[in-house]
């Protein structure tokens, strides 16, 4: 059990799908974060679209998703 033998039936492709699903899940969770929380610390008049940290997070997740999709 300590060696996760019970998961030995999952193929490498199957494992890849699990990881890709994890990235999608994280992306969805990021979507749920309130806008006000994202911009906390920035005065309202200084908030710009490119400072939206959700956008930053999705870009990073997109790149890592593609990397795991390829390899």
């Amino acid at each position: 059990m300590l060696n996760f033998n019970w998961l030995s039936g999952v193929s490498q492709e199957g494992a890849k799908m699990i990881f890709l699903g994890l990235f999608i899940l994280i992306g969805l969770l990021v979507l749920l974060i309130p806008r006000e929380y994202i911009f906390e610390g920035v005065p309202k008049e200084e908030r710009h679209w490119y400072m939206n940290l959700k956008l930053w997070a999705w870009i990073v997740l997109g790149v890592i998703f593609y990397t795991y999709y390829i390899f």
Binding site: F4, S8, Q12, A15, I18, F19, T67
Partner: peptide, 18 residues
């Protein structure tokens, strides 16, 4: 392959990575 099988002799089986 980023995903190594569970019976790999490397220190990086996918189960360990996850």
């Amino acid at each position: 392959h980023l995903m190594q099988p569970t019976d790999t002799q490397t220190p990086f089986p996918w189960t360990g990575i996850l």
